[in-house]
Design a protein around this nucleic acid. Structure first.
Lengths: 204, 204
DNA sequence: GACGTTAGTGACACCGGGTGCCACGGGCAA
DNA sequence: TTGCCCGTGGCACCCGGTGTCACTAACGTC
């Protein structure tokens, strides 16, 4: 329902953005589960059927163009020189991919708060993470000569992604230190075999 | 439909098991998405409505009593002495929780193949993993004195769980070496900061 | 200017997961 | 027998997601 806000001809690529913004706003205000796709479509000035032509699922509107994100991560990894340790190259790629301008940080926070906080979106995220893990595992396999499906490439991929996710969570909860710093901290712990644990452990 | 297989009075706790078995068989044969809950219910000799009284979601039948699993993990962690390094205690707890009798291994493989292989079940698994991560993070927090929500406890929890999941995947794909060995290998890599990478890396 | 093509859209019907409600029936205690 | 409880089935409903058809505006061609 509701008349098109802009009857002129520039609404083509704009629609997707309008949907994203409407979805983020509604999900943030009311919670993901308490908003129907009808409401999102209505807020964006389109029909429900049209919503599902722009996004495959209700959750997808929160993710923006994540595939491009993963592609860029893969390109950054492929372009790394062989001199630096593998973990450093992965950390650097994660930092670069997530290097947002200050103006974009509020929207990033909004997206992440939903993705990391709403159970339904957490569930959905697992499938996205698989794409990331695969790209990273292939990078590790190239650099080490191991098969991409063997233990070390897989393990490096999943645990570095766990590190990145955790860094995001901490950054989101605290917000004092910049995201890049949080990522570096997490990777440093991971790469060093958790030095913090060794300091505190081995008490007896 | 279909008459109750056992009209005597011992079908109370038995129903849940029948549903699980029917679900595992159907999902394995036809794929999770190509089986409806009607079919599962029918195969188990109950109505769809009754299925959803035993399991909250279509996916839950695959997981068995996972909450008990997590509880036991938490108890094992709480009972560990403070002498051994934290990571070792987590590894030991994972190994113990997943110490199945040989007779139970086929069903475990069946469950894991579905959980790790079917996208819809992978998505569902994220919510389960949150419970595991929380238990592990609390353990690390107790042992280190850090806040459970701070970086290191969170990171240890997510990356050890990533290690465990990866070990499961490798065990499932290969099947040569025992699960406990696969878990130990993964934790050793993780705890050592990925020694394998250091051997192969730093070529230049 | 009439034409066919194409992309974006809306309306409708349908499927399947999940829930609330009511009604039935069998076991069990008073 | 009476009353209760619990597991169950049936039904209607909500919502996410899809297939299909019809409409319309924009565009190039003749």
């Amino acid at each position: 329902m509701t008349v098109l806000a802009d009857p002129r001809g520039d609404t083509r690529g704009d629609t997707r953005l309008r949907i994203e913004q409407a979805a983020l706003d509604l999900f943030t205000r009311q919670g993901f589960d308490d908003v129907t796709t009808d409401q999102v479509a209505d807020a964006a000035g389109i029909s429900r059927r049209t919503y599902f032509r722009h996004f495959a699922t209700k959750a997808d509107a929160v993710w923006g163009d994540f595939a491009a994100h993963v592609d860029r991560l893969g390109q950054l990894l492929a372009a790394t020189a062989g001199e630096q340790p593998v973990l450093n190259s992965i950390c650097a790629a994660y930092v670069q991919v997530n290097d947002y301008a200050d103006a974009d940080l509020p929207m990033l926070r909004q997206r992440l708060r939903l993705i990391l906080g709403e159970p339904a979106l957490q569930a959905h995220s697992q499938v996205r993470y698989n794409g990331v893990d695969q790209v990273v595992a292939e990078h590790v396999a190239r650099r080490t000569g191991a098969a991409p499906g063997s233990l070390v490439p897989r393990l490096v991929a999943t645990s570095t992604r766990a590190a990145a996710t955790t860094a995001f969570e901490v950054w989101l909860a605290d917000g004092r230190l910049p995201l890049a710093q949080s990522l570096h901290d997490a990777f440093e712990e991971l790469a060093g075999g958790f030095p913090t644990l060794r300091v505190a452990g081995r008490v007896g």
